[in-house]
Write a protein that binds this DNA or RNA. Structure first.
Lengths: 236, 236
DNA sequence: TTCTGCCCTAATGTATACATAGAGCGGGGA
DNA sequence: TCCCCGCTCTATGTATACATTAGGGCAGAA
């Protein structure tokens, strides 16, 4: 594998997992030394991160991990709603009914486990949801849309980490996805679109709630809003 | 200005203007020598072009200008419709009525010139349309949406070049944009959304018509569909 | 003591040298 | 004559050396 791709994958994973928190300085020499690559491939990795919006040039001299606040999350969900609503509308027309029928059955089955099983089987939940997304993408068959959605999803990974889904929210999410799958199986684009909007509305509110509880300090100026005393560093 | 940015701007312009046609090989040493920069900043420029989708790695060894066919244009307009329809719906709520009222008046004024003036004043037409787009972006105030739209618009520049708008189409487009501006001035998000869909429907059909006439050979296999004898080169 | 201006360091931006792998071509054999 | 093997050459991928500039720190003066 190319060193630049390896560096990109590593940095992406670390940013998404929070190892490199928002505001962490991404010095070229520092990260190159840490990842064991030269500056050239690392620069390419930073360029890709900047292109997708996860790294920003705070000044002409310093690149940092992009900040993320409640407003960012709202903006992200606005774009996501536009793209996913449009995607399911198209998928209802173009998709294979059998595929979505089967997915709907899987959602029904996994939903029967009840909310108390969600904690243990959360990986199964997320995997099934990812497969529904993949099926929608395949049905729509639009590269430009897929790329736009991929960018949004790249950011959403970090949002999910901030807002760990509670078990009851995860169970509700399964039900919402089940309805989307059912609508797609029935080729009901209108229902699928509305169900998607409902799902994203609930997901956004849950995310904002959890995120505000955990880390985000937006609109809660309990401490002076000046520069933090110890800005997070990726590699102290 | 940084050399890499200069190289990117130059290559982007040449791709959008058709100087580097679809399929043109983008050799690093060749382009670096031509643009008078080293391979390092040129690689960064190629990376940015690849990130936006205008350059693709045809093989691990050769990068070419991305191809574009009727299907691409349709896909592009699908994404564009999702994003712009959502944008105007939000802009109707968030925008400043005065701004869009003034823009609507400008569209009315420029529309009174009649279709025969479109050829001479096409720059004025496009400039006014661009200002409406900018006003919508500003009203929506969503960075992620702006970036997604910027990517789409980057591709659309090339589509417009393939499908040179006829004067009567340009005149009709002005009328369609006027309606969008009027709807936004009236804070009528529904009307703005529908007007946007109508406009994009017309724009897509006009583009496909013109493009099929001029250069695109999709679905018209008059010649054998094998590899062309003389693939276009950027710098023979 | 504080503010301002200069210098120095360290970071990025660029160029070039080196490594490596793939594609094309030529020669030899069947 | 055709096919296969190997070689070479050139392209990319990587590392490193050089240039440039921004930003901080120190010293001097008010």
């Amino acid at each position: 594998m190319r060193q630049s791709e390896r560096a990109y994958a590593t940095l992406l994973d670390e940013i998404q997992r929070g190892v490199l928190p928002p505001g962490a300085v991404l010095g070229e020499v520092e990260q190159a030394a840490r990842l064991g690559v030269s500056r050239t491939p690392l620069r390419e990795a930073l360029g890709r991160l900047a292109a997708v919006g996860l790294a920003v040039q705070q000044s002409p001299r310093v690149t940092v991990v992009a900040d993320i606040d409640a407003d960012d999350i709202r903006q992200l969900f606005e774009v996501r709603a536009m793209l996913e609503a449009g995607a399911v509308r198209l998928a209802a027309v173009r998709g294979d009914t059998a595929v979505f029928t089967r997915l709907a059955e899987e959602f029904t089955a996994i939903g029967r486990r009840g909310p108390e099983a969600a904690t243990d089987a959360s990986d199964d939940y997320y995997d099934l949801i990812a497969r529904l997304d993949a099926a929608i993408d395949a049905a729509v068959d639009n590269d430009h849309l897929a790329q736009a959605l991929a960018t949004v999803r790249t950011h959403l990974v970090r949002v999910r980490r901030l807002a760990r889904d509670k078990p009851e929210r995860l169970a509700a999410s399964v039900g919402e996805h089940r309805l989307i799958a059912v609508a797609l199986a029935a080729r009901d684009g209108e229902l699928a679109t509305h169900a998607t909007h409902v799902h994203l509305h609930n997901a956004l509110h849950s995310a904002l709630e959890s995120a505000l509880d955990s880390a985000l300090d937006s609109a809660v100026p309990s401490a002076p809003a000046s520069a933090p005393e110890s800005p997070p560093r990726g590699n102290p």
